[in-house]
């Protein structure tokens, strides 16, 4: 491993976090279902959590980063709950979760 001029661990973590982030962005762009869009946001947040933990591990400040991750998880849960509530209320109003059919800005 010492003959390599790069750290395979750094490369694998950053590439996989990037791939998970891209998966979430792709789903957010191409999905038409509100619940699947919330799932895409969650997937993106997982990638950010991994990158945060990796940065803390790399710099030796894992305690600080742990407290950031816990704050982020709390925000993540509130976002998921509120978004699911909005999706539910959209469904009750329009009887659909397809964003292409939500084209009426009435009442």
């Amino acid at each position: 491993m010492s003959s390599l001029n790069f750290d395979p661990l750094q490369l694998s973590i950053i590439v996989s976090a990037l791939l998970v982030l891209v998966t979430g962005i792709y789903c957010l762009i191409y999905s038409r279902n509100i619940i699947r869009m919330i799932i895409a946001i969650e997937v993106m947040m997982k990638a950010v959590t991994l990158l945060l933990a990796f940065s803390g591990w790399l710099m030796g400040r894992i305690d600080l980063v742990q407290s950031f991750i816990i704050t982020m998880i709390v925000i993540e849960v509130v976002v998921a709950v509120v978004a699911a509530g909005i999706a539910l209320s959209v469904y009750r109003h329009n009887d659909t979760l397809d964003i292409d059919q939500l084209d009426e800005l009435k009442g």
Binding site: A53, G56, I70
Partner: peptide, 26 residues
Amino acid sequence: TLFFLGAPLAALFELSVCAGLITVIF
């Protein structure tokens, strides 16, 4: 992975809140 990176408390939160609570919500 978080546990392996030396963040056991964050891993615990991730496991209980994200894998448990968010799945139930969804």
